[in-house]
Design a protein around this nucleic acid. Structure first.
Lengths: 190, 190, 190, 190
DNA sequence: TCCTAAGCGAGACGGTACGTCTTGTCTTCCA
DNA sequence: TGGAAGACAAGACGTACCGTCTCGCTTAGGA
């Protein structure tokens, strides 16, 4: 029992060290030795718990991923339906709250380390909303999937750009702009 | 003079070797030595021309970039203006023609090696078209840039997805779908 | 504790490999990689213990040096003082015993790799004996040093020549001849 | 003819550059490229004339060697016979005159590059004088050769030491001291 | 309370790749 | 045609990380 806690503490220290270092100098530049030094852990101990730097990263991202997913579930529930997607605001707000980490994982130095995870979450959300809309069930599976990819790509790109320029216009403004583009198209919005 | 040609041949061999190897086993797994072996070039010669594997990659992308830019210039000229962007068809066609390379550079193994480059090219094109539209010059610089990021992200995401599923619906069809989403919004198009 | 032994074994293996290779193909022609292959040691491990081929050589000579010094200490104690230096016999005998190594280090291929070291040892011995002689301490420091250099140079030159011609006249005979020259001068001895 | 002169000039420039660089930073540290830069000569031109750095060195030493041999021939002729060898003074004087070069070639940095050559010359001189002495022809060839090696080694060692300490006691004094040691032995001289 | 299995730090080790440096060959151009 | 320029292959260098391993120390949980 107690031993388990010791193990957990070591793993936590490693995950935390990784994020700290990602923010400090970017994912690629980090070595296993750096992480161990930061976490005050022996290098052999590292390999006792994780097979590689990448394994540690994935394990760490899982946590972030869950947080974001939960956040957006609740957003989905509480927000009144308008035209456009309901998760937008939650996404921008969550990103701004954890700006450091997002910037490290998505923009700037750690270009897109966590993008895969975020895309996955968003894809599921978008697909759900879109299918609910076209419920009658047009056979147009491909068209739907194109729309999903299209939307997710657009949101993520905007999010990345926004983080890189310092999360500047407020989440509300960002959400409004993007919702306009999504719902009525570029020409109408521009 | 003749020397220049020798140099050019060596560089070409290296670029070509890199692409071959990217397709064969993915960018990260490639070693400078691998490239030299594939290109029949001494390792010191490699460093005579390029500072690193990354420098070679960038130099190689430059070539691709020019090709794509030229292609879209001509598309821009010949295609009648409709609603939506004019580069779409050229993009999908170019990607299908060089499917191997695109897949190596964007999807699958070499996740997003070249995305930066392609994004840059598309951004410029989109920005130009968008500015031409809002010519009077509304002060809405931010809104415009959001639209650029939005559009480019969307196109690239769809392109990636399309390449990963085998470039299946024809470029014309893809272009049509994406143009619809872009011009009239998700709800209208869905 | 055990680790120390492991380290010692590795270092020994490297030193031994170096001497083996010096005999086999001469010092200059040896590569760090050669040494590692001969010693069954990784190249990075080599650099963990020694900064360069030269550092390894010096470390190896230190060992030889100690052996020789000890040998001459005991000779100094046991041999009755006559005219001439007391270390002569020990030197020639030691050289003959380790003929391979001496030849590799001094004559033939590895011209004078270890000469510096050997000169140093002999210089100290000669200087001691000479100072003991002129104990009262004549101010003639220069003359004394000239005598030291003279004697050491002479002994080393004869030693080298002797090794190159196969260590042929016996150490006793060699010692006798050189002692004569040293003590009574060329004209008397010749 | 004119071409020959051009060739000779190039070779001279290379030899000269080598000596300059030996004095400046020692033989081992010099690269072929250094030499060419110093001589204002293309690297490929270097290889047109000499197979390697070593070949150039040998070619250069030949010149020095001849000079020294000539000098000592004349010394041999003019000096009145006393006890001890007649070449001593000439050796020390020649060394002091070309102190830079001697120091580069023998002492300090370029430890003993040219020693072989000098030893050879001295050996011949010593052997000649010694054989003249024991003309009757005792069969003691070995003893004689030992004396030769002994003497040459001693002279060269003293010469080296003298050069390293700045050629300080005058050639005359040096000659006197060494002649004493040679003729009457250490004990008498000390 | 001791003692025994675990987690852990330390660090040696064999590898692999890096980017640099020097060598010697070869080809092309210029005077 | 001799020499300058410099591309090129070869291969050693010393450094940086990697992942594996063996070693003792410490420390908590069951006897």
């Amino acid at each position: 029992m107690r031993v388990d806690r010791r193990v957990a503490r070591t793993r936590m220290a490693l995950k935390h060290a990784l994020f700290t270092l990602i923010i400090r100098k970017g994912y690629e530049a980090i070595t296993v030795e750096d992480i161990c030094a930061e976490a005050n852990v022996g290098r052999s101990t590292f390999y006792l718990h994780f097979a590689s730097k990448d394994a540690l990263k994935l394990s760490g991202l899982e946590h972030l991923r869950e947080q974001l997913a939960a956040r957006q579930q609740e957003a989905l529930a509480s927000v009144a339906k308008g035209d456009g997607f309901s998760f937008g605001l939650a996404l921008f707000e969550h990103a701004r709250e954890h700006a450091d980490l997002y910037q490290a994982l998505i923009g700037g130095r750690g270009v897109g380390i966590a993008l895969g995870g975020i895309r996955q979450i968003l894809s599921d959300l978008v697909r759900t909303e879109l299918e609910a809309l076209a419920d009658g069930g047009s056979g147009e599976v491909i068209a739907c999937e194109v729309a999903v990819q299209y939307t997710v790509g657009a949101y993520v790109a905007v999010l990345t750009w926004w983080l890189e320029r310092g999360a500047e216009p407020s989440p509300e403004q960002m959400n409004e702009m993007v919702r306009g583009l999504t719902a009525r198209g570029i020409w109408a919005a521009g």
